[in-house]
Design a protein around this nucleic acid. Structure first.
Length: 564
DNA sequence: TTAGGGTTAG
């Protein structure tokens, strides 16, 4: 980048600054530097150079669009619009850059696809692949599929893009089906990028067995030493409930970056292994690796799940004092959660009031949750008021509040969809649990009888509950807080999806095998109690992944020590 | 000068 500046000065000194060809070459270097290092600081310079070109051609426009696509996508689109206004016709290089900008904005440019078709560029494989990817980033999964289906020929990138599109939009099954189809139909060998999307799909489904297969596969083809792959595997094992294997991959990695450390710390945190998470954070610092803001979020999550108020506060303060970084809204949110979970609701409220950043509705909702949980209805009212001020039309808050205060309102399916969609990593559908058995993923939806063995499972569940009752299990029907925003209150708690999953597992998984349940929303108190009793009475290890964390049930107790 | 990828508060 320095060379670009030097050259520019030289041009000015020699009076050649008006030479279009030299300027264009400089612009190219500058843009290349900006794209390669994602260095936003060089972008103003690139724009200044571009402004010096009297009549930019398509290559100059492509260059300036490309350099801004990542860090400043609005600029890219504005240059693209200018290009069209000036009558410079975009080519097959232009659209992948423009589509990249759309991907970053998470919004597909209006009429872009039609324009591509009009210019006769719709059959360029680069453009088609970029379209799949851009549709994927803007949640238009069906449009992405349509482009893919209409391609006369597809390459590895086409398949990877579609797999990634499914994986990133919560369609784990489709991602894996597409992966299998790719290997069967085209006999393409997946590369690093393909595998990263596959691993991501496995993580969201919690398909541990398949994850182990991919782990072996990447070892075999020699990709396991890649930081990105290792990092994805650490995260995958953790999300599949096997924190031991996650740490094994971490320890085996020859090289690590800040993401590697962060996913490892986060993994320990969501499994309730807070002390180990903090130890790892310490090791990270010792190794000389600089934490970023996401690392701090992970460390704070570790504190919040174990009630480590003092440690959490210390780490929060160190963000600014030791690292000279400004705490983000997420960090403030974590602190509210730390105080709130520990029952320090007044402190949490004061903390929110004094925040230098305007708290969003998530922060207030965190506080509201803590207030209701600790019977602080006065403060809950205040928090409720603030949520209404900030977000008066947010249906989810109406749902949460109406439930918290005695089920005044009706569950609004639309609102639920919106809340769940925010968590794209997991799913878009309400209340379900997944379980892996015999290489297959079984799905159980709360209150639905969609599983082929449903009657058998229901009867079995009734017997299980009767047996647990004899050993002290009391079903709780007044489950207020923890299910509110997440699951429609059902007439019969026995049908919560995780209970159906457990009944199925007890019927099908041989004794001694750990039962792993993946749930898309938070586990409720009653199911939590149910799991503890099952782990005791049936002598089973049970691992439940819910929206926020993992619960490891064994011999009648849970790793979260009922603090979650 | 073109396309696909790994981490964040409830």
């Amino acid at each position: 980048m320095n060379d670009v500046y030097k050259l520019h000065s030289l041009l000015i000194k020699t009076g050649l600054q008006d030479d279009a060809a030299s300027l264009r070459r400089l612009l190219l270097s500058c843009a290349a530097a900006a794209s390669a290092s994602s260095a936003p600081e060089s972008l103003p310079h690139a724009r200044a150079l571009f402004a010096g070109i009297s009549s930019p051609d398509v290559v100059a426009y492509n260059t300036i669009i490309r350099s801004h696509a990542h860090s400043s996508p609005l600029h890219s689109l504005s240059f693209f619009a200018r290009m069209l206004r000036r009558g410079v016709s975009p080519d097959n290089f232009t659209f992948p850059f423009v589509l990249k900008a759309c991907s970053h904005l998470r919004e597909m440019g209006h009429g872009l696809h039609a324009l591509i078709a009009k210019l006769g560029l719709g059959s360029d494989v680069y453009v088609q692949n970029a379209l799949i990817s851009a549709y994927g980033c803007t949640n238009a999964v069906e449009s992405a599929r349509k482009v893919f289906d209409e391609m006369p020929e597809r390459d590895l990138v086409s398949w990877s893009s579609l797999i990634g599109c499914y994986a990133n939009n919560g369609f784990g099954y489709d991602a894996l089906a597409c992966f299998r189809e790719m290997q069967l139909v085209e006999s393409f060998e997946p590369d690093r990028v393909t595998l990263l999307s596959v691993i991501s799909a496995i993580s969201s489904l919690g398909a541990l067995e398949l994850g182990r297969w991919v782990d072996c596969y990447v070892r075999r083809i020699g990709l396991s030493w890649k930081i990105s792959v290792g990092t994805a595997l650490i995260d995958m094992y953790s999300r599949c409930g096997s924190v031991i294997e996650s740490m094994r991959v971490f320890n085996e990695m020859p090289e690590r970056n800040v993401l590697t450390w962060t996913v490892a710390i986060n993994g320990l945190a969501v499994h309730g292994r807070s002390a180990e998470a903090l130890k790892l954070f310490h090791d990270m610092k010792e190794s000389g690796m600089q934490p970023d803001s996401i690392t701090f979020s992970a460390v704070l999550v570790a504190c919040s799940h174990a009630g480590l108020v003092k440690e959490g506060r210390g780490i929060f303060e160190s963000i600014k004092k030791e690292y000279g970084m400004e705490p983000t809204l997420e960090h403030y949110g974590c602190m509210v959660d730390i105080f709130g979970r520990a029952g320090m609701v007044e402190q949490a409220y004061e903390f929110v009031e004094k925040m230098p950043i305007r708290p969003n509705s998530v922060v207030w909702r965190t506080l509201l949750g803590a207030c209701v949980n600790h019977n602080h209805l006065g403060l809950a009212e205040k928090a409720r008021g603030r949520i209404h001020e900030l977000d008066p039309h947010h249906d989810g808050d109406y749902v949460l509040l109406s439930n918290a205060y005695g089920g005044v309102g009706k569950w609004n399916r639309k609102a639920q969809m919106r809340i769940l969609m925010k968590d794209r990593r997991i799913s878009k559908r309400p209340g379900y649990s997944l379980i892996n058995a015999d290489q297959e993923i079984h799905e159980f939806v709360s209150g639905e009888n969609s599983h082929p063995e449903w009657e058998n499972i229901r009867d079995s569940l009734t017997l299980i509950i009767d047996r647990l009752k004899l050993r002290g299990y009391t079903p709780q029907t007044s489950n207020v807080l923890h299910d509110i925003e997440e699951e429609e209150k059902e007439s019969n708690l026995s049908y919560h999806s995780e209970k159906l999953a457990i009944a199925f597992a007890l019927l099908h998984l041989e004794n001694g095998r750990t039962i792993r349940v993946m749930k898309n929303i938070r586990i409720c108190h009653d199911c939590h109690s149910f799991m503890k009793h099952v782990s005791d009475v049936f002598q089973r290890e049970i691992v439940v992944r819910d929206q926020n964390r993992f619960h490891h049930f064994s011999k009648g107790s849970c790793s979260c020590r009922d603090f979650w």
